[in-house]
Amino acid sequence: MLKLTLGLIASLIGTANAQGVIQSPNYIIQMPNLNSGAGIPSSSNYNVGTTIGQTGPGLYSSSGYRVKSGFQYIYSIIPFSFTISSVSINFGSLIPQTPATSTNTLTVASGGAGGYQVKASENTPLKLSSSASTIPNTNCDSSCTNTTAGVWSSTSRYGFGFNMSGDDIPADFVDLTYFRPFADRANSESPQIVMSSIYVGRGRQSTVTYKVNISGVQPAGTYNNIITFTAIPSY
């Protein structure tokens, strides 16, 4: 399992009653990142709302004041994190007209106001390293696109696609029989949303089921590609 937690080191979002200012003769940049909390004001009944670099996110309090460090106001103690349970999705030996599936889990924790999105795309369709031969992206039983899932249950329909289940997934994944192809960056297709929420959440989890089915005339060899998942919080 590989986990990334990126502190919002250079966050410049948010307003503050006590703002720092960076300025030059020509420009003033409002609300810069303050990586240290030097000179925290304190007096009775005084609330400080300052977006300080999330090196030390948390709620700091003493009598008369509270400093909410990080994204302003709302659940600022939850860092934004994104985890993929398994980065290698193995299909084993592919047998014609016998779909192979594999799964991994995506987990997101989002504490900033406004939630998050996770988008997915592939660098190419599943491709032989030694030639240009590919396993095409699925078109499901009748039709599906990288934005709209379709039923894919027939063993005579070939290709590569994925299903989503769990938290915060798109509504077109009605059940486990609904699949989409990945957006293909080699074909200039834009990454598409696979998880999305407008709310704060911890441990928001979804399962990705990858499916591949080949025909009897698929050239022999080892097929690979890279699926990129990008998690971004809302502004």
Partner: peptide, 19 residues
């Protein structure tokens, strides 16, 4: 082996107001 590799990316938003 026949496989896909999952690559993860994580973003932090920056909003710069210039005036």
């Amino acid at each position: 082996i026949n496989n896909s590799k999952a690559q993860s990316r994580i973003g932090a938003n920056l909003l710069v107001s210039v005036s």
